[in-house]
Nucleic acid binder design. Structure first.
Length: 494
DNA sequence: GTATGCGGGCTTC
DNA sequence: GAAGCCCGCATAC
């Protein structure tokens, strides 16, 4: 493969480095003369290949935004993972802000079963696990292989479902919940909440269709209401899929965490996030408004009743979002390295993969439906409501959307095929960790990123325009209709 | 409790 | 035989 490496090294291509090279995860010999590595991609989609540095912590952990579970492929040299899909409301209910519930399936089988027994926090109907069938009817598979100084990643299939909550978000939420549980305010708040919400839950039967109370209801049902006296009520307001940019290459407002981490080079990861921009100087998971709110609660407790009252009036997702650094929040550079053994030997592998058969990004359009967020917001939130939120979350700095989040706009191009990649990056061929690499660095992932980018606030019209062709190519996929954008039930464990 | 990795074993194509 | 899947086990957090 080294030959192929040389062959493509100078090629003009916006593809990721891994895609410029001709290799397959099953190749007995993988490219060894890697001169540069791809920026870690959390939300890979499509038939893509990346070559990460063996030093990349995220790659070492085989991280993925998608809920990927280990799959035994009877090949100890190649770690295979298959997508679990996403957990949604069986009734496909729409939240007050027009968003949809999209939870991250638990990786552990046991935990997943447990998760599915829970109810939709909004309508109390059952939760439904939407399996991934993006790879010829089978779940999308990710392959990881360590070879030399590089970690080779290959994905097969295109996710035919919305994104679930990312792992980092899940971890952050759990961490927040944990903190709150141990908070000295916890028991007191619990009592307050119980007295305030008990009338709604005494029978365990919610008010069907009473969505304005769903937040409270849902949290209660998920046994997390005690941990979220404030977020519970605010949650619906922040659900619009406001993506946020991982501020890898920019000073993080919350800071130091980023500097201590190996910078995940995934500078272009946009994720649906609650647009809430409450920034808290909370160590650990930083930057997430909702999560932060959890922390905040421990810091400056407010009457739970206030939040509960506010809940009813909130529905508009107008809160702007600030760039939130998920990795800063959720990835610990000091974390363990997975025990996945380093593989240097070359086995005799079989046939080639199928990555060449499908245009890398011919299938992601539907994702935009997942994030109609750039929609101006269905249920208008009155300024008064917003004001109330702010009021009830005192000691919180409200941060409007930062313009920097919008610099994706130029990346919105369509790569029809890998070989056709244009050169926008090669000239400035970055070193191993192109943290400040221009977004065009990996055109092959454009498909996976396009929808992420499109949801950004500065280009609402573009997102709208794209809807048509997005859906067009996925007429068979009903998810565009089902999923508006992720529902971040920040306050509960699913 | 959950995530993760490993590996045996089964089924299907 | 490859691939997908289920399961149990071990380990780490």
């Amino acid at each position: 493969m080294s030959k192929s490496s040389d062959q493509f090294d100078g090629a003009d291509c916006v593809c990721s480095f891994g895609m410029k090279l001709t290799w397959d995860i099953n190749d007995p010999k993988l490219p060894q003369d890697t001169k540069q590595y791809d920026a870690f991609q959390e939300w890979t989609d499509g038939y893509v290949r990346y070559i990460y540095s063996a030093e990349d912590k995220n790659a070492q952990r085989h991280l993925s935004g998608w809920a990927m579970r280990n799959t035994n492929n009877h090949n100890c040299q190649i770690l295979k993972k298959s997508c679990l899909g996403v957990v949604v409301c069986a009734r496909n209910c729409t939240l007050t802000d027009g968003s949809k519930l999209q939870l991250r399936p638990a990786i552990c089988d046991k935990a997943r079963q447990k998760q599915q027994k829970k109810l939709c926090p909004s309508c109390n109907s059952a939760l439904e696990l939407v399996p991934c069938r993006g790879h010829s009817g089978y779940p999308v598979t990710n392959f990881w292989r360590v070879d030399g100084k590089a970690i080779f990643f290959q994905a097969k299939g295109v996710h035919d479902h919305p994104r679930p909550e990312s792992k980092s978000e899940t971890e952050a939420r759990r961490s927040a919940v944990k903190r709150r549980m141990s908070s000295p305010h916890y028991s007191q708040k619990r009592r307050l909440l119980d007295s305030e919400t008990g009338r709604y839950h005494d029978t365990g039967g919610p008010f069907p269709g009473l969505h304005h109370l769903s937040c409270m209801e849902g949290s209660d049902r998920f046994s997390i209401i005690a941990e979220s006296n404030i977020p519970i009520q605010h949650y619906p307001t922040f659900q619009n899929a406001e993506p946020y940019k991982f501020a890898y290459d920019s000073p993080s407002p919350v800071g130091e965490a980023a500097s201590t981490l190996q910078k995940p080079a995934n500078h272009r990861l946009y994720m649906p996030r609650p647009p809430c921009s409450y920034d808290f100087a909370v160590p650990g998971y930083l930057g997430s408004g909702s999560y932060a709110a959890l922390y905040k609660d421990t810091i400056s407790p407010q009457p739970d009743t206030d939040a509960a009252k506010v809940c009813v009036g909130l529905s508009g997702p107008q809160h702007s979002v600030s760039p939130l650094n998920v990795h800063d929040r959720g990835y610990d550079a000091s974390g363990k390295h997975h025990s996945w053994k380093q593989i240097h030997g070359k086995g005799a592998y079989g046939d080639r993969a199928d990555y060449g058969q499908i245009p890398t990004n011919s299938n992601h359009h539907y994702y935009n439906s997942e994030y109609p967020c750039r929609y101006t917001g269905p249920a208008p939130t009155t300024p008064a409501a917003l004001q109330t939120i702010i009021t009830t979350t005192t000691k919180v700095s409200y941060q409007p959307c930062k313009p920097s989040v919008v610099k994706y706009s130029d990346n919105l191009y369509d790569v029809k095929s890998l070989p056709s990649c244009n050169s926008l990056l090669e000239g400035g061929s970055p070193p191993s960790y192109p943290e400040i690499k221009v977004p065009e660095d990996s055109g092959v992932i454009k498909s996976a990123l396009a929808y992420q980018q499109e949801v950004l606030p500065a280009k609402p019209e573009r997102a709208e325009n794209l809807d048509t062709y997005r859906y067009g190519s996925y007429s068979s996929n009903n998810y565009p209709e089902r999923i508006a954008h992720p529902y971040r039930f920040e306050n509960g464990e699913f």
